[in-house]
């Protein structure tokens, strides 16, 4: 099977096991630029592993992942890290903001890792913080802001490099519905405005409802729900 034409990131026949635990067992995936795809499934089904493989964080045991025509398996760890720095953005459920850095420094971090000067990086960071309505928090440390604010800071950080793909793993998992929805609205709006693709791992249907398409992962196998109907 070949990836659907025009897809930005696609995976076929992914297999990955952690010791005796099989996390992925022939999963498939594809996403187009500007598309928001929700990855759903019960706990332990392998949806986070799928995200980690797609993002080049974890190499799969077998299968292929192509990003923009390049095979991820053929890249070195350093190349994949560079790809993640420049082309991808990440939002996780917790533990992602560096507690010592101020919010604006946290948002500027990916730019700084790419070699942008501190001043410029923080300027860009502030623009994004304004878009996510958290520019008032620039001097605060993550420990001093609420969960929803922190998550918006994290979204700003994920988008600050203008990534082509945004990976979000349970981005609202630790938030109440109101905050969760606000974060989703801002996240999807921002992604659409930059034509970024969003891989959204969630177990909440109302969060998945912000997607254009849904994939369900069960027992390490994926199912594209569009093809079901």
């Amino acid at each position: 099977m070949t990836p659907p034409p025009g897809s930005l990131l696609a995976a076929e026949e992914l297999r990955k096991a952690y010791g005796p635990t099989v996390a992925l067992d022939g999963a498939e995936f594809s996403i187009h630029p500007g598309e928001v795809v929700a990855v759903m499934g019960p706990s332990g089904s392998g949806k986070s592993t799928l995200l980690h493989c797609l993002a080049g964080i974890v190499p799969p045991d077998s299968g292929s992942i192509t990003y923009n025509g390049h095979e991820l398996a053929g890249m070195s760890d350093a190349q994949r890290s560079a790809l993640r720095r420049s082309e991808f953005g990440f939002v996780f459920q917790f533990g992602q903001l560096v507690p010592e850095l101020t919010c604006v420094e946290n948002v500027a971090l990916p730019l700084r890792l790419n070699g942008t000067s501190r001043k410029e990086a923080e300027k860009a960071a502030l623009t994004w913080m304004e878009r996510l309505e958290v520019d008032g928090l620039r001097k605060k440390r993550p420990g001093e802001v609420s969960g929803g604010q922190g998550q918006r800071v994290a979204v700003a950080r994920a988008l600050v490099t203008n990534p082509r793909v945004l990976f979000a793993d349970e981005p609202t998992g630790a938030l109440d519905s109101l905050n969760g929805e606000r974060v989703m609205e801002l996240l999807t709006d921002a992604a659409r405005s930059t034509n970024a693709a969003v891989v959204l791992v969630t177990h909440e249907a109302r969060v998945a409802a912000y997607s254009d398409r849904e994939i369900v992962v069960r027992d390490g196998k994926s199912r594209d729900m569009e093809r079901v109907v």
């Binding site: 249907a205 109302r206 998945a208 409802a209 912000y210 997607s211 254009d212 849904e214 369900v216 199912r223 729900m225 569009e226 079901v228 109907v229």
Partner: peptide, 13 residues
């Protein structure tokens, strides 16, 4: 079930 699920999600969207 999956068909129904997709339909539900379509509605939710």
């Amino acid at each position: 079930l999956d068909t129904q699920r997709a339909e539900h999600l379509r509605m939710m969207r």
